[in-house]
Design a protein around this nucleic acid. Structure first.
Lengths: 139, 139
DNA sequence: ATAACTGTAACCAGAATAGTTGCAATTTAA
DNA sequence: TTAAATTGCAACTATTCTGGTTACAGTTAT
């Protein structure tokens, strides 16, 4: 694997929940549409739950439903609820501190990373789950 | 490892080249500052060369130097020269085509991915290697 | 000629992510 | 009150990615 598909799956899952008409949906069913294992879905759902985007109920007749209206779920919230990695990684080994360039590189890159992350957040903040639903329907 | 640090290392490498005063720099020296193996550096340099950002010369007294002035090297060029991954990955397995959501998900996500990539490109386009040099010096 | 480099291919090692299995805890319903 | 259906979670496996390393061919300066 490698390459984080959490966000992609999360959008997929939330879209399914949004279309259930408020009915609780089982992880098994979701896994069928996403084409993965139910446990993978439940793991993800557990993150979305912490972020108060969905609500689950255990036991027979259990399942998960949205905790808010699609129009009130911003994609930036989804992104932040998950541990999606940064756009680029910093050096894996620390640069050489004896070199003036190496010494100051990390600080600069870290700042740049934050700026980019902010751009992404702003972009994702422009869309809600309702927008996703509309785009999916119109095909 | 995992998590692509190519971009971070590239900026580091280019900064070193920019400070060499036009002199060719050896991969061995660069590797010393970045704190990695010379081959890793040469691999990266090879990508930057394809993008016409640097020029290398083989043989004794060989090495690499910038192909343009720092003010003419935009960080977006650097980013594009490398195969940095996308911000988020699409599903690793294809979604279930029998489900209306699964069927349309990939197209939507792909579009969103492109939009985000564009934001990143625009952000990185605002900076040149000269800006990096200035930020590094002022510490 | 020889030594110093780059360019590259091939392989190894470590880490991250998704996929799986198994089971405890909870809830519904017969 | 027992059985069946579900979530929650821990632990393990499999796959894949990326960087590190080795080895060596080709090139150039001295």
């Amino acid at each position: 694997m490698a390459a984080n598909s959490q966000f992609a799956i999360a959008i997929h899952v939330l879209t399914i929940l949004a279309r259930s008409g408020g009915e609780r949906v089982k992880s098994d069913y979701i896994a069928g549409s996403v084409n993965t294992n139910p446990v993978v879905i439940r793991r993800l759902l557990s993150n979305l739950q912490e972020a108060n985007l969905v609500e689950s109920q255990v036991g027979a007749a259990g399942g998960t439903s949205l905790a808010k209206q699609p129009k009130d779920i911003r994609l930036s919230e989804v992104y932040n609820a998950l541990s999606c990695g940064e756009v680029f990684a910093l050096h894996s080994k620390e640069p050489n501190k004896d070199c003036p360039v190496g010494r100051n590189m990390a600080a600069f890159l870290c700042g740049l990373q934050k700026e980019i992350d902010k751009s992404i957040g702003e972009k994702l903040n422009q869309y809600t789950l309702r927008d996703v639903l509309e785009k999916i329907e119109e095909r």
